[in-house]
């Protein structure tokens, strides 16, 4: 049943976000091209002829317009992604659509998990589209892009030579997994806040916003106390900061962050499912 729920949640994305995901890299490519054109035009303009001045001005205008469009699309991706995550949960489970979803023969955790998976996928693809677009612009904006890639390559080679490939490979894997978990955590935190917010009869939106802030503050206090306890009880951990085994330390640190993030996801999920199972308050 979870697969069927995900199918319907994913279907609702296709109409809004897919065009933006395609549009961002395409505009980034145009932007990148227009910057290269601008650089080329500047070279000609050194000769200071009237024609070359006009060419330079024209290419500046084109680059400016493409840049504006690009930033517009990036903001649109960000806003649409956040709106999508909030709206699909709010409208899909807590408003009229809830009468359909909560009477389907499925468990409440399946409804929440389906929305969570779908929103995480949306968050990941939006982030990927944004990163890809930025890389495209960077390649266009920096003429010596080949040099940069070469330098990145030699940096990786140096690290591998010094530290061995094992720990740094783990770091890369853990970083990717942590990024995905971070997106899922953000999604679930919003879900828990909305689930709490629907309990505030007549002030559901305000309740959700207050709950979101409350959850953030509560988590900061708990993690602060935990970190203080760790510092007091295990001062020998400082040993890892000496830089001799940075790869291993980084991997373990990322693993620790990943476990904490997974713990957060589980806690927000359980809060959301409990409230929606026992205290559902449909409009």
């Amino acid at each position: 049943m979870l697969g069927k729920l995900i199918k319907y949640d994913m279907k609702s994305i296709s109409r809004t976000l897919i065009p933006l995901w395609i549009l961002a890299p395409v505009i980034a490519l145009l932007f990148s091209g227009s910057i290269r054109w601008l650089i080329g035009a500047t070279g000609y303009a050194v000769q200071n002829t009237v024609g070359n001045q006009a060419l330079m001005q024209g290419s500046t205008v084109v680059a400016g317009i493409v840049m504006l469009v690009f930033f517009g699309v990036m903001i649109a991706i960000l806003v649409m992604t956040i709106l999508f995550v909030i709206q699909r949960f709010w409208n899909g489970l807590l408003k009229e659509e809830g009468y359909l979803m909560f009477t389907l023969p499925v468990e409440t955790w399946e409804l929440v998990l389906s929305k969570g998976i779908c929103a995480t996928v949306v968050g990941c693809i939006s982030s990927l589209a944004a990163v890809l677009s930025c890389v495209m612009i960077a390649v266009g904006a920096i003429g010596a892009a080949d040099d940069i890639w070469r330098q990145i390559g030699s940096l990786i080679g140096y690290i591998v030579e010094e530290e061995g490939v094992f720990w740094w490979s783990w770091c890369v894997v853990l970083f990717v997994v942590l990024s995905i978990a971070g997106i899922a955590e953000s999604v679930y935190r919003v879900y828990a806040a909305m689930a709490l917010g629907q309990l505030f009869e007549g002030h559901r939106v305000v309740g959700a916003c207050v709950s979101y802030i409350g959850i953030g503050v509560a988590w900061s206090v708990i993690s602060g106390i935990f970190m203080m306890a760790v510092t007091v009880l295990a001062p020998q951990w400082v040993y890892f900061f000496n830089g001799e085994n940075a790869g291993m330390f980084s991997a373990f640190y990322l693993l620790f962050l990943l476990l904490v993030t997974i713990l957060q996801i589980v806690v927000w999920h359980l809060i959301t499912v409990h409230i929606l199972s026992r205290h559902l308050n449909l409009e």
Binding site: Y8, K11, S12, R15, N91, G92, E96, E97, G98, Y99, L100, T103, L104, P105, V106, E107
Partner: peptide
């Protein structure tokens, strides 16, 4: 889950998502 599979419920509100077609509801 069992009772939901044997109960057909008509609420006093319409519960459709805007993006859905009639055929999407039949699929669901």
């Amino acid at each position: 889950i069992y009772t939901k599979s044997v109960v057909s419920y008509l609420p006093d509100k319409t519960y459709f998502a805007d993006w859905m077609k009639v055929s999407d509801m039949f699929d669901l």
